[in-house]
Amino acid sequence: MTISDRVIRILADHALLDTSDVTMDDTLESLGLDSMGLVETIFAIEEAFDITVPFNANAPQDSAFDVSSVRSIVAAVEDLMKQQA
């Protein structure tokens, strides 16, 4: 499974959707993930990839981890895996 497949599976699990319903252009809002859902999702990503995600729920837009779309989340995870390898 590719990184994007695994990220999509985690997002789908937390959004209670089928993986086939999640596209790269989806946003947290379109997936129906609220702030608590996001914090849980990030925890699951950290556990799955053994990385530390820099994310502050107070100011999501200022965090280094871009959560504006599924595509940006996948890209951020790929970056972090390279940095923290």
Partner: peptide
């Protein structure tokens, strides 16, 4: 830590640049 609402620098209530 898990809640991700903790400040890394210091506590800045009501300041636009607060981090938690």
């Amino acid at each position: 830590e898990g809640l991700r609402v903790m400040a890394r620098d210091t506590c800045r209530p009501f300041s636009a640049d607060r981090t938690g």
